[in-house]
Amino acid sequence: MESPPSVALLTEQIGAVSIEVGQCAQRLSGLLADPESIPELLAAWSRETLERWPDLLLGAGAAIEDSSRCRLHWWQLGGNGLDVLLVDVDPGSMGYYDFTRSKWYKGPYQSHTSHLTGPYVDYLGTDRYVATMTAPILVGDDFHGVAGVDFDLSKFERRFLAASRGAAGHLALTNGEGRVIASDARGLTCGELLDDGELVSVVPTGTDEAWMLWELAD
């Protein structure tokens, strides 16, 4: 089966988001010498990006290393504009979030390429079910942090269901490990693992992980 055009349109947007995230990381690498300018630029970028894909994204921002520290600058779009996400940075606390050890940070750190994490329950950060796309901020071969976005998977599911409406069979979009991101098949929801299906297409995400579109028997 061919991937229905409306589904292809949705998956192409993932690539477009990835290009945007990569460009942001590149711009940040040019600004590292002037750290004072970063919060303002990042806030503006987050707002633009979140407003450009309001039906896909939950949050946007960056985590930037500065000598021995790493600061998280992350925003979500609320009713009255940008909300900043504050995470717990106290190592003695139960909610301590050492995000430098999370997959979305370590992925680009290890591979020096863009990375896609999830779907996962982001209980230390946004407290939502998300997938996170991050791109490394590089100066030559030196890693200085990541820029990224969170996909809101409830929004993503709604988009997927609307897009797959006309398809002949049942479809499921999964990550590289077979975890379902969205599906219109019976009994298969976001977060489950897919155990059987016929590969329709590999969705290039612009990262080191491809997502996959499957056709399922009824």
Partner: peptide, 22 residues
């Protein structure tokens, strides 16, 4: 969850100064 989402009114979207973590 364990994080906080705080509204910012500063044009730069700057979080408040934080001194001691949680």
């Amino acid at each position: 969850g364990l994080a906080m989402v705080e509204a910012v009114d500063d044009a730069a979207g700057r979080p408040g100064r934080r001194l001691g973590g949680a």
